[in-house]
Design a binder for these strands. Structure first.
Length: 141
DNA sequence: GCCAACGTTGGC
DNA sequence: GCCAACGTTGGC
């Protein structure tokens, strides 16, 4: 099982909206590198959910419930979406400053490539983020 | 609100 | 195929 990080401006689509919706398709990715990451996602993969611009923190973990398929919002077949559902919310949101200051997470793609909206996360990074968020050891349903 | 970083576009 | 111009993103 792989881990990823997806980000969104909360003003456009927030964690709270995902919790309310129960499930959504992750659209709007118009960057090849991010698209490639989306296509590599498999059902059951976990995605750290990051709020960019407002908040700048990881607020929860989303779960991939459907792997990549044609983006329904465009007829351009270069772009795909995945379906995600909310998993655990962070007990304590993990801020960008937190990630930068921890040696286990300061090399994350999020920090190195701030504009990449979908990026891979290593198992060690994922574990470290959950620990910082106060949800270490919790099982996802 | 500003600006740096980055990706994309289009002229040559 | 190169590179300048432009638009967008996101941290500050």
């Amino acid at each position: 099982m792989a881990a990823w990080l997806i980000k969104s401006e909360p003003g456009k689509y927030s964690w709270e909206m995902l919790v309310h919706d129960r499930r959504t398709f992750w659209d709007g990715v118009r960057n090849y590198q991010a698209r490639n990451n989306l296509q590599a996602m498999k059902k059951g993969d976990l995605c750290l959910f990051y709020h960019s611009v407002t908040g700048k923190e990881i607020v929860g973990v989303a779960k991939v419930v459907r792997s990549a398929y044609q983006d329904p919002t465009t007829t351009d077949d270069r772009w795909v979406v995945v379906d995600v559902a909310p998993g655990r919310a962070m007990k304590t949101p993990v801020t960008l400053a937190d990630l930068k200051s921890d040696p286990q997470t300061c090399e994350m793609a999020l920090i190195h490539q701030s504009r990449l909206s979908v990026s891979p996360v290593t198992a060690a990074e994922y574990k470290a983020v959950l620990k910082m968020g106060g949800v270490a050891g919790k099982q996802h349903r």
